[in-house]
Design a protein around this nucleic acid. Structure first.
Lengths: 221, 221
DNA sequence: GCAAAAGTGTTACTAGTACACCCATGC
DNA sequence: GCATGGGTGTACTAGTAACACTTTTGC
């Protein structure tokens, strides 16, 4: 290859993986176990190779870190500050990935790193510029979630309306009226009743819904 | 530099420059005057250097092609198809830039290329994947314009409500009721009356408005 | 039967839509 | 004075917001 060295760049693909767990929106982080920055946390990432697309690299990274590759992926931002890392200049292509909690539990939490799900408002100390990358990704997700169709990726299987409401309350950062929330969602006709109910652990059991197939990208709230 | 050659990538920054001209939303294209693809059209672009950010590269490109650098710029998408160009693998970071028509006229239309403003629904034959890049950028702009704050960059100076209405009609692809459009915008309290009017060329003169300073990013339509 | 969470209906208010006539200018 | 485009008000409809009681389950 005869590339002018002034134009040589490296790009790393960085994954912000989100899920709903224990009724909270969480992001998956990996702990760094060597110095420097031992004990700090990181996002899964890999350098982009010349013969793969960003999406291929992102999927490979997901597979490598957690054994899941077939998930919703979306480009978020390309960071290009020359000094974002202390050593080389590496651009960072930030992705958001959405995984539903059922798929999640079936898979291994592998690789050499210790990983943990963090609620988006309790992000620990992170290496380099990763904490601002997570923050931006969260903002990005917030905006996207006010459209409907992305939700299907977090709830491909059954869910209850109270669960959905809690999610929206987190995303919007305020409490919603239960009756109005139900009315809104049911009138939109995006959901179908499965006929099933949750076993009432304490309190009355809730009806289980699922998303219909062809939901548009209508703006909600 | 000792970079593993598998991870060497080149990135070009591509500018989709939009303006309002003759009451239409238009994009600036440059004609290619050599074979191959002579007579086809292109978007202004440059390769990203190792010591500059994407935004710096984008501004330099704007300056080089049209002598304007201080404009609204926003990242749009990063294209990474391995075969998007026939020769080398080059990633493309697509930007949208917004220029108001007044600023526009004062500047030179320079460089070696012939340039022209094309209405977004009359894009000519373009080299490589540029036509799909323009198309995506237009879609991106459409979505962004349904928020308010971006408009200030297309109308930094005075404008009339009918002008604004025509713009929205193009963006939304449908006709709007004049009375309801006025009501909506005036109630939003984003505009202030300048006190001036257009000279009525034919018909009654229109009031001139300008955007207030602190407009949020409220969703419109 | 009581604690805990789910489900339901009505009213007031606010925003959006539809629609027809008068007004200021250039020629 | 007439052609052209700009400006205005009202009634109707749909969506949103506020609010309290009843139902089903586990223990």
């Amino acid at each position: 290859m005869d590339i002018d060295t002034r134009y040589i760049n490296q790009i790393q693909v960085i994954i912000n993986m989100f899920t709903i767990k224990d009724g909270k929106l969480k992001v998956l982080l990996f702990r760094r176990d060597e110095e420097p920055f031992k004990g700090y946390w990181m996002l899964p990432s890999n350098l982009l190779m010349v013969n793969e697309t960003l999406e291929e690299c992102a999927k490979a990274t997901m597979d490598e870190y957690i054994g899941i590759a077939d998930v919703y992926l979306e480009q978020c931002y390309l960071y290009s500050e020359v000094d974002r890392l202390p050593s080389d200049r590496i651009l960072a292509s930030s992705f958001i990935a959405l995984v539903d909690s059922k798929t999640l539990e079936l898979k291994r939490q592998s690789r050499n790193f210790h990983s943990e799900w963090f609620p988006i408002d309790e992000i620990p100390k992170m290496v380099y510029d990763y904490s601002s990358i997570v923050e931006n990704a969260t903002q990005f997700l917030r905006k996207r979630m006010l459209n409907t169709s992305i939700l299907k990726n977090l709830y491909p299987s059954d869910f209850t309306l109270p669960e959905l409401q809690v999610l929206y309350e987190q995303v919007l950062g305020k409490n919603l009226d239960r009756r109005n929330f139900r009315k809104k969602f049911l009138h939109l006709e995006l959901l179908e009743d499965t006929g099933d109910k949750t076993g009432g652990h304490n309190g009355r059991p809730a009806k289980l819904y699922r998303f219909k197939e062809n939901m548009g990208d209508r703006t909600l709230f």
